[in-house]
């Protein structure tokens, strides 16, 4: 019996966001946009979903005259990501056994 994967993380864009943020302290919106390769609108939407779940924190400020959005993973986000990776690893282990 497989454990259910966190539906919030089981999405390409959201998993990609959290996978980047788990390895760094902070990342700017433009950095995520460049590396995750999705649209601006979709990235904003997915970031809001992660923020609402308490997985990330979003900080809005200014650099010069330009708005600056930085994202940071929370403890809750790290825990959820670890659980997700463990579940995936478990899935692969069990699939190997069943072969």
């Amino acid at each position: 019996m497989f454990q259910e994967l966190d539906p919030l993380l089981h999405s390409q864009v959201r998993l990609a966001i959290v996978s980047v943020l788990v390895g760094v302290k902070k990342a700017e919106f433009s950095f995520l946009l460049e590396n995750i390769n999705t649209t601006k609108g979709n990235l904003s939407f997915q970031l809001s979903k992660l923020k609402d779940a308490g997985y990330i924190e979003i900080n809005k400020s200014f650099r010069g005259n330009y708005p600056l959005t930085t994202c940071e993973i929370t403890k809750k986000g790290i825990d959820a990501y670890e659980r997700y990776v463990e579940t995936i690893a478990d899935y692969f282990k069990k699939s190997q056994k069943n072969k």
Partner: peptide, 28 residues
């Protein structure tokens, strides 16, 4: 890696691993 909430997601465990691998490379 486009994704819209209105579309049903076809995202399996293999793809999850692929996304995690790619993003680890981004951090590195």
């Amino acid at each position: 890696m486009h994704n819209n909430e209105s579309k049903p997601e076809t995202f399996d465990e293999q793809q999850s691993i692929q996304v995690i691998r790619e993003m680890i490379q981004v951090s590195q």
